[in-house]
Design a protein around this nucleic acid. Structure first.
Lengths: 152, 152
DNA sequence: CGATATTGCTCAGTATGCTGACTATCAGTA
DNA sequence: TACTGATAGTCAGCATACTGAGCAATATCG
């Protein structure tokens, strides 16, 4: 039988597990309580003010049923707002709050530090190559998950 | 601001997301209802008969609080058995059942096919290199998650 | 215009994963 | 042997992720 470490699926799970742990550790040490998922959502809301939930989900490849709870928590923490859209009464327009902006700004060094730590065992060239290969594999498999990436 | 695709953490999450979807699709098409986590646990029980839950968790880098539920479901499906250990009354000895063995045997082609599909966008050499880099990054970060890999 | 299809969002249910706490048991030592 | 610490397992609680269903609103087409 194959060893676990010969299975890309197992390696994917393990790398993601470490990535989340490192993110939470760095961000927590900086005094913030934000998950990787919440961070990505908040940063994307800031970069695309007024976007709706489906568009947000597409931009970061989340399932639309997952995003509901994520935004609930961002709103509950006072970092984002959810408003009814005037153009489409089904949709919700998302905005970042001033506190959300402040949090993003202050949290950035910890987030960047976390990205470095995840790759700490690799040289710079190896880290770049890993990201390139991941991007390529992800692009080829984009449509295979229920939550594919969608351009704006 | 950095793009998502420059963040190893985001790429990790996305690759894992696709890997799970591909696994479930291939295994489901073969007529089985087994998650990647359940598969890894079952295969490891088969390879290490009578091992306890903490050892199993270490071998596949699961949290010990997660493994309880995973084994519950394997037992519930009739694929594994959980027995009290005679040497240590705190511990549970895990065994695969005949049906578990049958399931593993029949599911293997689907699992291997899933591993290939995850890397379908890469050449053979690139796939090998991706796995090498993931293994290296994971080895360096092994102790950073609550559920590090532990040798037998 | 009206029937139909599609879309945006939510919800119930299930399965990882984690934190932190707790019980029962075991191991080492004074 | 009694005390102390460590270990195996479970549990409650929270946060992703997914499936599948449903509701309300919009878009499309005959």
């Amino acid at each position: 039988m194959k060893d676990n470490s010969d299975m890309p699926g197992h390696l994917a799970r393990r790398f993601q597990q470490i990535a989340v742990a490192v993110f939470l550790a760095e961000v927590g040490e900086a005094g913030f309580d934000l998950t990787p998922v919440q961070y990505a959502a908040l940063a994307t809301i800031k970069a695309n003010p007024g976007l709706d939930q489906v568009t947000l989900a597409g931009l970061i490849a989340y399932d639309r049923t997952t995003i509901t709870g994520v935004i609930d928590r961002l709103v509950q923490k006072g970092l984002a707002e959810r408003r009814a859209s005037s153009r489409d009464r089904r949709a919700r327009e998302l905005e970042i709050t001033d506190e959300g902006r402040r949090t993003l700004r202050k949290i950035t060094p910890a987030v960047e530090s976390a990205q470095r730590i995840m790759l700490q065992g690799l040289s710079t060239g190896e880290g770049d190559e890993l990201m390139r290969l991941l991007r390529k594999a992800i692009a080829a498999g984009n449509e295979l998950s229920r939550a594919p990436l969608r351009e704006a």
